[in-house]
Amino acid sequence: MEKKTLVIGVIGADVHAIGNKILYHCFVEAGFNVINLGVMVSQEEYVEAAIESNADAILVSSLYGHGEIDCRGLRERCEEWGLRNILLYVGGNIVVGKQPFEEVEKRFKQMGFDRVFPPGTDPDATIACLKQDLKLGEENASSFTN
């Protein structure tokens, strides 16, 4: 089975690199092809990388609290550039201040994100969601992972 391709990075002016590197290694170990854009990634860079790599998903991280601002319009940008069905995930400390996660999740889903993950989400939970959303069933799991 061909590996699914993910584009990951930390959006906006955020320079938090450690979590991004951990996610990269976890996703690679789980059998994904991962394009890691690093930190301070613009929406355009995500979309361009997804087009160039024929990605199956874009995973946006943010830890500095301004993810909500940085992510506005990303779904629309994807659609404008022909990525109508790409999976969009976002996670981390994506809003300023303490806000109920249910409200945050609702706002991000209204912005077109398929999955929204709170701070401290275990990478295995994200991997499980990716496998579900990319329809990588148990019968394919052994051929998917290395």
Score class of each variant (00 low, 15 high):
57 A>P: 02
98 K>F: 11
87 L>S: 02
96 V>W: 11
62 S>V: 08
88 L>D: 00
60 V>Q: 02
47 V>A: 08
95 V>P: 04
98 K>T: 10
65 G>H: 07
43 Q>T: 15
91 G>P: 05
91 G>H: 05
35 I>V: 14
84 R>F: 13
64 Y>N: 15
73 G>P: 04
63 L>Y: 07
60 V>G: 01
80 E>G: 05
75 R>Y: 11
68 E>V: 14
61 S>P: 12
53 S>Q: 13
75 R>C: 05
62 S>F: 06
96 V>P: 09
45 E>I: 14
43 Q>S: 12
63 L>G: 03
68 E>H: 15
80 E>P: 03
59 L>A: 05
77 R>I: 10
42 S>N: 09
97 G>W: 05
74 L>V: 06
39 V>W: 03
94 I>T: 01
49 A>E: 09
97 G>K: 07
80 E>K: 13
73 G>K: 11
34 V>I: 08
31 G>D: 11
47 V>L: 06
88 L>H: 03
31 G>S: 08
64 Y>A: 13
35 I>W: 09
59 L>Y: 04
55 A>E: 04
41 V>T: 10
59 L>D: 01
32 F>N: 01
74 L>C: 06
58 I>T: 05
39 V>K: 05
49 A>H: 05
46 Y>A: 08
84 R>P: 08
47 V>S: 02
76 E>T: 07
69 I>R: 14
32 F>R: 04
86 I>K: 01
86 I>Y: 00
68 E>D: 15
85 N>S: 15
89 Y>F: 13
40 M>Y: 09
74 L>K: 03
54 N>D: 14
54 N>G: 13
76 E>L: 10
42 S>G: 13
82 G>M: 08
55 A>Q: 01
44 E>P: 09
37 L>M: 11
88 L>I: 03
89 Y>N: 07
76 E>V: 14
34 V>G: 00
47 V>T: 07
68 E>K: 12
82 G>S: 07
90 V>N: 00
52 E>L: 10
75 R>G: 02
49 A>P: 07
85 N>P: 11
95 V>H: 06
51 I>S: 04
43 Q>A: 13
92 G>T: 05
65 G>F: 08
41 V>L: 07
93 N>F: 12
91 G>S: 08
82 G>V: 08
59 L>W: 01
91 G>E: 00
49 A>L: 08
46 Y>C: 03
88 L>C: 09
59 L>N: 04
32 F>W: 01
54 N>A: 13
75 R>T: 06
57 A>Y: 00
38 G>H: 06
71 C>S: 15
76 E>A: 09
78 C>R: 00
90 V>R: 01
38 G>F: 12
97 G>L: 08
62 S>C: 15
33 N>F: 08
78 C>I: 07
53 S>I: 02
94 I>E: 00
69 I>P: 11
65 G>K: 07
87 L>N: 06
54 N>P: 06
58 I>S: 00
93 N>S: 13
56 D>I: 02
96 V>K: 12
39 V>T: 15
78 C>K: 00
49 A>Y: 01
81 W>M: 12
36 N>H: 10
82 G>N: 11
62 S>H: 14
87 L>K: 02
